[in-house]
Amino acid sequence: MATPTVVREAVETTASPPPVKPRKRGRNRRDQIAGYLFLTPWILGFVLLTVGPMAASLYLSFTNYNLFTSPQWVGFDNYVQLLSDPRYHQSVKVTLHYVLVSVPVKLVVALGVALLLNNSRRGQGFYRSAFYAPSLLGASVSVAIVWRALFSDDAIVDRALRLVGLNIGGWIGNPDYALWLLILLAVWQFGAPMVIFLAGLKQVPQELHEAAAVDGAGRWRRFISITLPMLSPVIFFNLLLETINAFQVFTSAFVVSSGATGGAGGPAGSTLVYTIYLYQRGFQDLRMGYASAMAWMLLLVVGLVTVLMFRLARFWVFYGGDDDR
């Protein structure tokens, strides 16, 4: 069975300790000590820098907190309000749309380009860097300016689309298309998953391919039966992380939509992704309790998605290094 042990344990976070295989006691105790020794920096960071703030935000989600005065306990009020907040619903809708489209498209593009570049032809360094260059820009105001310019009325995208009979005009001012602008921006910055795919492809042992080629397997066959399974941990990583990150998309949406007359998230709420609304509630309206409740709702939902993805991973992710394969 290809069930990855770590994942199974991670998913079943019940208090029961993982099954310890009958082994020599000395080895086992040494493993126990070594495990925690290797984890010391992470545990320190987790305890000092992460747990406290996380717990604080959980606590604040049950309070009214305006940053100036001490938080006041309100129980589940914030969570109840979320349910009937039309703008919250809008942000959920926009975010789901964004996640469901941008993640798969970006990953397919990233994998495609990674495969294209995974050979020993000349100029690989150049190509790799060039394809990665858009992601180096981050999500700065410069990106916002160029992106808005390319998709404005009568600019290059509009003209190109008119050639194929699509007449959209400017995208950024049009509530029906503004979100697509952000999706395309995410896809354009496909560099990070591409690099991870490339690194993963490098780890596929060459001799497997050679052996299969000797056995007469064609290129497609080798891709399906060697590359994809060997790459599955990395595909899984990219899929999971891109999904988590897409749920939390902020900076790019913020800088691109900030120009809208109605403020970030516009026009007409069409790019109001979850964290923009969270930011507006927390830092503009100074309702940090409400923002924290939003954050924990997101944690719950994305946590469920994550667990689901880990469960499904059993069926398709293959780890060469697992002892119980």
């Binding site: 991670a10 964290t275 924990w296 290094g321």
Partner: peptide
């Protein structure tokens, strides 16, 4: 440690680590 060593609590700690990815940074 997570990938190559077997020790008690590994699963729980791993899950905790993943969970730190899930909270939007604004509230932290």
């Amino acid at each position: 440690a997570f990938a190559r060593i077997r020790f008690t609590g590994r699963g729980v700690l791993f899950a905790l680590m993943i969970s730190t990815l899930l909270l939007p940074f604004h509230v932290l």
